[in-house]
């Protein structure tokens, strides 16, 4: 059984936590979560908490850089970096 990709886990988590009315597959890796999918500052914090729970990592205050949260691809790179 193949392991689920980080991107796929992220998309599922985003749709579930933000109660989005789309399927996880519809989120495109490179499209802006903020401009295209309507993620705002409050839902961004929900995503930060979601990432911590889903991947067992801690998002430090110093990690709060909008470029890391802009797209699923950027989030995936961030998660991989944090997971070492």
């Amino acid at each position: 059984m193949s392991e689920e990709s980080i991107e796929s886990r992220l998309k599922k988590m985003i749709v579930e936590r933000l109660f989005m009315k789309i399927s996880p597959d519809e989120i495109e890796d490179e499209k802006s979560l903020i401009n295209v999918y309507g993620v705002d500052s409050v839902s961004l914090l929900e995503l930060v908490v979601g990432i911590e729970e889903e991947f067992g990592i801690e998002v430090e205050d110093e990690d709060f850089d909008v470029r890391s949260f802009e797209t699923v691809a950027a989030l995936s790179a961030f998660v991989q970096r944090k997971m070492g």
Partner: peptide, 11 residues
């Protein structure tokens, strides 16, 4: 901090 990040790019 999240609001600062959204406004200024980082906190």
């Amino acid at each position: 901090l999240t609001k600062e990040m959204m406004t200024f790019g980082s906190n």
